[in-house]
């Protein structure tokens, strides 16, 4: 029988302890909270599955979940194709390469709350550069503080501005790793530009695109700061995404039990969708 050296596990131990401390134990506490009611002071009362049942039937939860899927779906549908397109039009060698890379990386270096504040000031209808321009120069009525459609357009554009670069940089890394010989072979065979894209570039970018889609899905599904700073969830509740609603329940209303139940359902959705994306995108790879 083949003997295996299991010593490597000891090297994983510190990370395991760290993850237990900052993720696993808090997560277990959330599970404990989700079946109880508390009024503070470390006093807990058993509630069973009441919070889950209430939440699954609550209009408010359905609405914020729907908004969350709409937001994530829209930004993925824009950022992934746009990111690939920008990466393909970037130069592969020469003087402009570092320039393009730095310009692309800049938005990602700005902290979330600053992005929210920037876009808030930028889009305010009477004093913001874009808001003023649209309203008073072009004469288009635009007010993201009052109009639901304008608020949605603004948070979508803000996210596209902030995070398309991630898709661009990952796709670009995939593109530059394609050897020149592939393109030469395609040229000899007389392949069209689309055929080159479909059968050479896209398959070669698949691995990095899997990571890009996963990261963008998880980040956008858990997004809090940017829309919170920009619109505060308004007008009304129209941009109250899941995490904003969750914080309202947990810290605004101090309903820790329902908030814990909500975070577990939230977690289950993130887990399932991430698993689906990952499985579907890596399904054809020989393992």
């Amino acid at each position: 029988m083949k003997t295996e050296n299991q010593k490597a596990w000891f090297f994983v131990l510190p990370v395991l302890l760290l993850v237990a401390f900052n993720a696993l134990i808090p997560m277990m506490t959330v599970v404990n909270y989700s079946v109880q009611e508390t009024f503070g002071d470390n006093m807990f009362f058993w509630e069973g599955l009441t919070w889950f049942e209430n939440l699954l039937r609550s209009e408010r939860f359905h609405a914020s979940l729907g908004r969350q899927f709409l937001f994530t779906g829209l930004i993925l549908a824009i950022e992934i194709p746009l990111g690939i397109a920008i990466a393909m039009s970037m130069p592969r060698k020469g003087f402009w390469v570092p320039f393009c890379l730095v310009i692309m990386a800049l938005p990602m270096l700005i902290p979330w709350n600053v992005v929210g504040a920037m876009w808030n000031i930028f889009t305010l209808p009477d004093i913001g550069l874009m808001g003023y321009f649209l309203n008073h120069v072009l004469g288009i009525s635009y007010d993201m503080t009052q109009n639901v459609f304008a608020a949605w357009v603004t948070i979508i554009i803000m996210d596209v501005w902030h995070w398309t670069s991630l898709v661009v940089l990952l796709s670009y890394a995939g593109l530059v790793s394609i050897p020149e010989a592939y393109y030469q072979a395609a040229k000899i065979d007389g392949a069209s530009n689309f055929a080159v894209f479909r059968f050479i570039q896209l398959p070669k970018m698949k691995n990095v695109l899997t990571i890009a889609v996963l990261l963008r899905f998880i980040d956008s599904f858990n997004i809090y700061t940017e829309p919170f700073v920009l619109t505060g969830g308004g007008p009304g509740n129209s941009t109250t995404l899941l995490s904003i609603d969750l914080v309202k329940i947990a810290l605004g209303q101090f309903d820790l039990g329902p908030a814990a139940a909500m975070s577990l359902i939230y977690f289950a959705i993130t887990l399932l969708v991430s698993w689906l994306f990952y499985t579907l995108m890596t399904k054809d790879d020989a393992r």
Binding site: I25, V31, V35, Q36, N42
Partner: peptide, 15 residues
């Protein structure tokens, strides 16, 4: 451990 607010059903789940 009291801050973790354990209950028997959740403990059994994790066990």
């Amino acid at each position: 451990m009291s801050w973790m607010a354990w209950t028997w059903p959740t403990a059994l789940l994790f066990i």
